[in-house]
Amino acid sequence: MPNSKTSYTRRRAIFQGGVAAATALTAPTFFVGKAHAANEKLKVGIIPAYSFGLYWLIQDQGFAPGVEMEFSVFPSGPPAIEAMVGGSVDTITVGSVPPLAAMFRKVADFREISICGDASGLFQIVGKPGMNSLADLEGKKIAVTSGSNFDFFLGVALANEGLSDMPLTRVNMEPIDGQSAFIAGAVDATVPLATSRKLIYDALPDASLLTEGSQIPIDKRPSIMDVFMTTQQSLDAKEAAYVEVVRAFHDQAVKMLREDNAATIERMIEWQTGMGRAGVTAADVEPLLNGYFYFDKAEIKEVYEKGILTNALRVQSEFLVANERIGGMPDLDALVSDQVVKQI
């Protein structure tokens, strides 16, 4: 049943109170990587999470010589989906929750053609100094992107503690804005983006870690996949390019990550620096990059053959429906497509 005790406010109401917005992550489109004679171009919308950075690594290392990827950066899934629907990008890296609402609304013929990584262990809920547990969120304001992986994680974490009906106010914000609001004291807690949450602890050393995915027992931990998604129209038009890029991800990029982790970390520092995060160090990158579970070629085939992604999306969809984030179940059989994975 939906939680009638939970209220929602919009980010505008918070910022009208005087909170300054953080630097936007919607950076201009940029090209980075080794020059090669590409036969096809893919315009990729990317969110600055490290599992997604492996697609930048493919371009950087020349692992898919037949494809040139042009990257545009987005702060979260919803604006990336909007850009893909509008045609400014062909494909996006995105958390698995935002596409579910869009698929239910039948915005486009979306297809999740691969998985970047399982990110469930990386999520955190951070509270203001003095908080000790999730129960301390009662009656408080928490910044979280509505209908996102962050929102799903918050809901599961509260449910695991028997706190689903606890009154609190979710403030709908992009992760980077929620982080700024939290630091400024406009909200009491936030579910931050992993790649930028270090700034919270730098600004508020006494901020409280209320829970994180790695602390939740495996049998209760939400499965939160980061996916590679496009539309059926784009997939049909550029199928060979998608096959080459996805093969490179699960073969060469994952192999480099596992066998030469230090070199991969150095390249991720370069990637983050290109997005204006010049202060990132290897110590910052290593736990976040390696906190995901990545699938090699054999493993990703098994995920699709056994319906593991579909089952994870079904659990998430049921959560969204029960909590009135979406009006009904999306067509998961259409959303999860093995058109590419079966060819790699």
Rank of each mutant, 00 (worst) to 15 (best):
S214G: 03
N160T: 07
I46K: 13
V191G: 02
F74I: 11
M268E: 14
K128V: 11
G291Q: 02
S51R: 05
V67N: 06
V126M: 00
T281C: 06
H36G: 14
A283F: 01
H250K: 02
G274Q: 06
S114Q: 07
A24M: 11
A241K: 05
Y294V: 11
L54Q: 14
M268H: 15
I46F: 08
P217M: 12
A119W: 09
H250S: 04
W271G: 05
I125T: 06
T230P: 07
D109V: 06
G162S: 03
V97P: 00
A135Q: 09
G328E: 03
D333G: 13
V156I: 09
M329S: 07
G53I: 04
R12I: 11
G307E: 00
S114T: 06
V280K: 11
Y294H: 13
P129G: 09
T29F: 03
A334Y: 00
Q232F: 01
V341P: 03
G327I: 09
V67L: 05
W56T: 14
D151E: 10
A203S: 13
P167E: 06
Y292E: 01
D90F: 04
M225Y: 15
D60N: 13
V89T: 11
S133R: 11
S196Q: 12
E305Y: 03
E112K: 12
S337E: 01
T9K: 09
D338Q: 07
M131S: 05
L320A: 14
G62I: 08
N290G: 04
E161M: 08
Q59L: 03
L100C: 07
M229D: 06
R221T: 10
A119V: 06
S208R: 04
A159L: 00
K34V: 15
Y294R: 06
D206A: 14
P28L: 10
G155H: 14
L332N: 02
R221I: 09
V341S: 02
A157M: 02
I224M: 15
S146H: 14
T169C: 10
V107T: 14
Y8I: 14
A101Q: 14
L289D: 01
G155I: 07
L193Y: 11
G279I: 08
T190P: 01
V336G: 07
N160Y: 05
A157T: 01
M268V: 13
A248R: 10
S4D: 13
D296E: 04
L210Y: 06
E266N: 15
E174A: 13
